[in-house]
């Protein structure tokens, strides 16, 4: 595993050097887009919307539309706006985890202590576990400041990115029923149903079987049907040799007949 980022946790006067790893992986199958006719790979091109001609990467800039006109941004503009690069996961507060609504949760990452930080890491992990609290921290990843919580889970300190309040939409536009519309007897029934279905949460019970099912279909298809080979790419060099050889063979055939 390669760390995405290295830095340290700033906890009071102590710095704990850590490496940050992604905690999640994709379980989807990697499918390619093909032309139905000959199974050639589909390629994307960036084209000029007016002329339809391809535009090279080096000729592409990014802009923002204001008053029907584009303001084009340069590398320098982006740099000026970037968060100042720091290497610190700065802990601001400690809170109870249940106070954070799950709507705010984003990507989880694992934190691994650097060699020189194992003692401090262990101490911080113990303190988090004992206090049953999580640390609220800010840090800069890829030029952008992020908000996160740090919590101890099964021996590892997990950094869970959380959304800023501005990123979560207001619910005002949704048409929601008032509280008073619920009858007490019906509520009683609903509650008892919930009680009946209540168990301990076990994530291993829930499987993403889509990828596995799709793989089964693919394997069965590969076995039963003749797979269509995509057309071979022929380079200029090979193409030249090919036509040369074809030419000389057909000349010979003419001579014979």
């Amino acid at each position: 595993m390669k760390p995405l980022w290295t830095g340290s946790i700033g906890f009071g006067l102590v710095n704990i050097p850590v490496k940050l790893y992604s905690a999640v992986q994709n379980s989807d199958l990697d499918l390619d887009m093909l032309d139905k006719k000959d199974h050639a790979n589909i390629k994307f091109k960036r084209v000029n919307a007016d002329t339809g001609k391809e535009v090279l990467w080096e000729n592409i800039v990014r802009g923002y539309k204001i008053n029907e006109r584009y303001v084009v941004l340069t590398e320098k503009d982006f740099e000026d706006a970037n968060a100042k690069k720091t290497k610190i996961i700065e802990i601001e507060d400690f809170v109870l985890e249940q106070e954070i609504d799950s709507t705010y949760y984003e990507m989880p990452y694992y934190l691994e202590p650097d060699k020189s930080g194992t003692k401090a890491y262990a101490l911080f992990r113990e303190a988090l576990t004992k206090s049953k609290k999580v640390g609220v921290a800010t840090f800069v990843l890829r030029n952008k400041e992020h908000l996160a919580i740090l919590r101890a889970v099964n021996g590892v300190i997990v950094l869970n990115r959380i959304r800023f309040d501005e990123e979560v939409k207001d619910t005002g536009e949704l048409k929601l029923p008032a509280k008073s519309e619920v009858k007490p007897r019906e509520l009683q029934m609903a509650l008892s149903l919930i009680n009946q279905l209540t168990t301990k949460f076990d994530i291993s019970k829930y499987k993403d079987t889509y990828a596995a099912d799709l793989m089964k279909v693919i394997k069965a298809k590969a076995k039963g049907t003749k797979t269509v080979l995509p057309k071979m790419k022929v380079s200029h060099k090979a193409g030249d040799l090919m036509s040369q050889l074809k030419e000389s063979l057909s000349r010979k055939k003419k001579k014979v007949s």
Binding site: M232, K233, V234, S235, A238, L241, M242, L245, S248
Partner: peptide, 16 residues
């Protein structure tokens, strides 16, 4: 010569 040219083509396409 023809054998060599065709084998050259096969080798070239393999290398590619």
């Amino acid at each position: 010569d023809e054998a060599k040219d065709f084998s050259h083509l096969v080798a070239m396409m393999t290398q590619e």
